[in-house]
Each structure stands twice: as structure tokens, then as C-alpha cells.
């Protein structure tokens, strides 16, 4: 699903963000990327969905070599990925259901089926009664669930989440990870960048640790390491 070979990312003028990263993520994996702020977690994710290009090395995501893919190819890649951000990135002047259906709108899905599916998704996420509200009127947890709904609506093959629970309380954090785990159980590969060690320890799933742009650990079962 994801294959990084000797990947370097240097921001101008001379700021290394990732140094010689080798990484393999198989289909249906659930992987945490841990590390302190500035360790390179976000850059790693950005390289995966084509928001940044590697300075050196090869990045393969969902069968595509991203150093050879143009802007159009990146757009098509993202249609197979669901992206979740810490700050939700919702359209504040569009209703909740518009936000969720937006992922299908850009794919050219007709209005009725995209709103039907968006409403079903909001129902399972417990947000049906907020469907016509504007995002700023929702709590942080509700907004993140809307963002997750948008990332899930097109049944992505890969979910990339950058600090998805950074602004949430423990209860909402659990809701968000329950959703991600369920998506993973349904066959979606999930990669979550977080510095929430409690969650990593509790879920005890594969964890990659970054420090100063280098992978310093790749643990299949972090709890076993204490």
C-alpha cells in the first residue's frame, strides 16, 4: 500500500525534514506514526498524499510512484485516500451534510445519491440532527466526526490522519479511534500520526517512531516494549 525507499525531504533553503526514510505499510495495516513535534510526522503524511514531493528517494502509494505522477495523477490518488486533519478543515459556510457530501461532489456524483449517502453516514456517526447546521456551531468532537465522515464517504483504500484527536477530550478520542479501527476492519489501511502515547499503548498496534526526520523505531507491539 505504501513503500518509501531512501526518502529525503529537505525544505528550502536547507532544512531537512526527513532523512533516508525506508517504510513499508501493507494493505489493511493500522499503523501509528509517533514522535515529538517537528519530528517529521506531518511531512511523512504530506508525502503520502502528494502535498509535498520527496527531494530524493522513491515514494509509492496505492500503486503509484509519486515522483512520476503529475497534478492530475495526485488528484486521482487522493480519490482513493481519506485525509483527516487536526483542525478538521471543514467548509465553515457550508452545512454539515454539504461538507460530508463534498467528497462525492468533486467526483461528479449526482446530488441525490451523494446526499443520501452523506445522511446515512451522519446517522451512523450520530450527527443526523446536526446535518443542516454550520460547522462552527458544532463541538470539536462533532466537527472531527464530520471530517471523518467526509474522509470515509467514498470508501477510501487508505486513511491518513494527522493528529486527528489533538483537540479532543479522551471520550471523543475513543470515538474517533473506534471509527478508524472499524474502517480498518472493513479493509481500509489506516495510518495515524499522533503524539498521544496513551492511545498508542492502549491499542497496541504497529508504531513507527520518528525523531529529527529519521525512523528510530518500528514496533509491531509497542506495549510489549513497555
Amino acid at each position: 500500500m505504501i513503500n518509501f525507499s531512501n526518502v529525503h525531504k529537505i525544505y528550502p533553503p536547507d532544512q531537512p525534514a526527513l532523512v533516508s526514510v525506508d517504510l513499508k505499510v501493507r494493505e489493511r495495516d493500522f499503523v501509528f506514526v509517533a514522535g515529538a513535534s517537528g519530528a517529521g510526522k506531518s511531512t511523512l503524511l504530506k508525502l503520502m498524499f502528494g502535498a509535498e514531493r520527496a527531494t530524493r528517494g522513491e515514494v509509492l502509494v496505492v500503486g503509484r510512484n509519486l515522483s512520476e505522477v503529475g497534478a492530475q495523477g495526485i488528484a486521482y490518488l487522493r480519490r482513493e485516500i481519506g485525509i483527516i486533519f487536526q483542525d478538521y478543515k471543514l467548509l465553515t459556510r457550508r452545512s454539515v451534510i454539504d461538507n460530508v457530501a463534498f467528497g462525492l461532489e468533486v467526483l461528479g456524483v449526482k446530488k441525490k445519491p451523494r446526499y443520501d449517502l452523506a445522511m446515512q453516514l451522519l446517522e451512523v456517526l450520530g450527527l443526523a440532527d446536526r446535518a443542516h447546521s454550520l460547522p462552527p456551531t458544532l463541538s470539536g468532537g462533532e466537527q472531527q466526526r464530520v471530517a471523518i465522515a467526509r474522509a470515509l464517504i467514498h470508501k477510501p483504500r487508505l486513511i491518513l490522519a494527522d493528529e486527528p484527536t489533538g483537540n479532543l477530550d479522551p471520550d471523543m478520542t475513543k470515538v474517533v479511534f473506534d471509527l478508524l479501527l472499524e474502517a480498518n476492519a472493513a479493509g481500509v489501511t489506516v495510518l495515524v500520526a499522533t503524539h498521544n502515547l496513551a492511545v498508542i499503548e492502549e491499542l497496541n498496534l504497529r508504531t513507527i517512531v520518528l525523531d529529527n526526520g529519521k525512523i528510530i523505531g518500528n514496533f509491531q507491539s509497542p506495549r510489549a516494549l513497555g
Binding site: V109, R114, V124, G126, K174, D178, A186
Partner: peptide
Amino acid sequence: MRDGGKKVGGAYGLDNLWKGDVDLQYF
């Protein structure tokens, strides 16, 4: 679970939703 959604058999039913009956017609 506070503020959570409708659970189906301990799950949110995402798989059922994705396999659901909504026919995604394209423009």
C-alpha cells in the same frame, strides 16, 4: 460512550453502509 453514534453490533456499521443500497450515479 458519550456523544457517539449509532452502534450496530458493537460497531458503527461502516461496512454495511459501504455495501449499502445507495446507487452512486455519476453526472
